[in-house]
Amino acid sequence: MEAVQLTKNFGSFAAVSGLNLKVQGTKCVGFLGPNGAGKTTTMKMFTGLITATGGAALINGVDVTKDKKAALASCSTLIETPEIYSALTPREALSMLCEIRGVPKAERRKRIDESLGLVKMTEWEDKRVGSFSKGMKQRVNVASTLLSDPEVIILDEPSTGLDPRGMAEVRSIVMSLKDRLIFMSSHLLAEVTEVCQEVAMIDHGKLLVYDTIENVTAKFAGGGGAVEVGFTRAVDEGLVSRVSQLSGVQTVTRTNERHIVVRFDPNLTARDKLFEGIAGLKAGAVSFEQSSGLEDAYLSLIKETL
């Protein structure tokens, strides 16, 4: 997969701006960035759902904009949370895709059985999709990406809508897919760390970094440590400011309503004093968790969430 000066403008807003990225080989590449960074837009350009304003999106050397049929011949995709014709059963929906994708007739039944088996939907294969929950539909969507034994798989947040067991199963499926290139966006950094070997990070439509997870972590996670602190109440600016003033603290980043990530001096030896300091603020701190290297790198590279 190669993006060459790939650009997408929506009016005056540049969703993706001159993106250059080449991923090749057989591995899993995580595609990371905050909301609105251009991840899904990039993936949609690679799958013909939207047309690039400029540049090229190449799969196996074929520009998707110029010949989508040839470009996607060995590529399967899962973008956002597709819906399936509600009156069809999973078996029928997957049969339709098998026919479109040219899976030999003799192999179709076996491939559908295997795919549905992998996502634990065999029991539901002859029920109409219209009666399924969002998670069940997403399982069928995941199964659809496995049907034609593709060389390239593009997954846009494949765990969306799945329960924790479903998420774990998708991770396990992705990890089991050998000898192909998987390009996967996700907001779950733990999932990316577990599944992927490389990461590409974009923000404001521009590529920030593309490297192995080890290299990205080594370069951008910083030498210091980081902990994620959970609170019983919403974190406000005052609390962020008070934590920032504690001895040894370098930066404080609010990750969601009740969590902050505190990066601290690598030379800080008495970490227990820091934790005591946060607890001493009496702001309802209830959890301290070691922040992952990738998360640390992500927070270091991406300063804003929008």
């Binding site: 759902l49 956002e80 597709p82 819906e83 399936i84 994708r101």
Partner: peptide, 15 residues
Amino acid sequence: QNRTGYFLVPNPIRR
């Protein structure tokens, strides 16, 4: 509107 296009369009098939 129903998002069925997301299932069908990103395949090796012309619109």
